[in-house]
């Protein structure tokens, strides 16, 4: 067992493969005459140096004290992990939060109503959602643009016709498109959750301009978006108590899905791929060992003439 582990760990990876070669290396090695104590001392120094480096790195990573921003704490999302899918009930609730709260200012130009089908809504439900909005289409036979109810193929409507209009309505700030907000921010959904629930009074010395609010998770602290999520600010269709943290959690899960609609397929594919690669790797390893048996077990004999 130990030998197998050693072999797998590749203790001898840097060395050549044949016993003869190993002997030759050994006879050339200048450390073979070192005392056991000397080798032990060197190994201890190496281990301590590595350990100290790892400790410094771990401390740096845990507190990130060298940064000037507050990092979002990590949460245990139900879709974390290699085998966990998104919580689709949560994604649906998150859609409700987006539609009733966020969509007033934020666009989501890469998500279409068809994307909801089979994920959060049935086809009929998604059609009904789409029909709630009016979409500019055309031109018609007379060359005029017209309004029609939305269809599954339509993308979520933008609250503003263009960036300038969005800035004019928001004190100069441009509410970003939310389709890819999760991967576009350090911390992902943890950041979104922390931002939405992290509003507080500005500490002494922090000066905010008109229309700005304090949020320690936002770079710089001064954010133009007011706190939007409060307890019971909306009513969930499935009856889940709409606490502020529940709303934030659901919308963050929804935003993870919008940025990565393939999330569940990806993880299913991971399971399949690992099953396949494990079998292939085992077979290929066996085949390789089998072919090398002759080479590895041969003996070379030197027969001098006469």
């Amino acid at each position: 067992m130990a030998a197998s582990v050693g072999r797998i760990c590749g203790a001898g990876l840097l060395k050549s493969n044949s016993a003869i070669s190993l002997n030759q290396i050994s006879s050339f090695s200048t450390t073979r005459e070192w005392s056991r104590g000397r080798k032990l001392l060197l190994a201890t120094i190496g281990a301590l140096t590595g350990g100290a480096g790892a400790l410094a790195f771990a401390l740096d990573q845990s507190v990130k004290a060298s940064d000037l921003e507050l990092h979002a704490p990590k949460n245990l999302w139900s879709h974390n992990g290699f085998f966990n899918s998104l919580d689709h009930a949560s994604v649906r609730r998150g859609y409700e939060v987006y539609k009733q709260v966020c969509a007033a200012c934020h666009s989501m130009r890469f998500v279409a109503y068809r994307d909801l089908v089979g994920v959060t809504h049935t086809e009929d439900q998604a059609k009904a959602e789409a029909e709630e909005v009016q979409v500019t289409d055309g031109p018609d036979d007379t060359g005029a643009m017209f309004q029609r109810p939305g269809k599954l193929s339509d993308y979520f409507p933008s609250p503003y016709p263009n960036e300038e209009a969005a800035r004019a309505a928001n004190n100069g700030a441009f509410p970003p498109d939310l389709s890819y907000i999760v991967p576009a921010r350090h911390g992902g959904e943890d950041y979104v959750f922390a931002l939405l629930t992290g509003y507080c009074e500005a500490p002494a010395g922090v000066i905010l301009r008109d229309g700005q609010y304090y949020n320690p998770y936002f770079p710089g602290g001064a954010i133009s978006m007011a706190q939007s999520l409060f307890n019971e600010v909306i009513e969930y269709s499935d009856g889940t108590p709409a606490t502020a943290s529940q709303l934030a959690k659901d919308v963050a899960t929804f935003l993870r899905w919008t940025s990565e609609p393939e999330h569940d397929d990806r993880k299913k594919m991971f399971i399949k791929a690992m099953g396949m690669f494990t079998i292939l790797a085992a077979l290929a390893y066996y085949l390789k060992r089998h072919k090398f048996t002759v080479l590895k077990s041969r003996k070379i004999q030197y027969k001098p003439k006469n």
């Binding site: 993880k267 991971f270 791929a273 690992m274 690669f277 494990t278 292939l280 790797a281």
Partner: peptide
């Protein structure tokens, strides 16, 4: 010898690549 060894190496590399891509 090395054709099979390379195939084994390729499978391991692809496995690591797809662990990263799919997780």
């Amino acid at each position: 010898y090395y054709s099979y060894k390379d195939i084994f190496g390729m499978i391991i590399m692809l496995m690591l690549l797809y662990i990263l891509i799919l997780t």
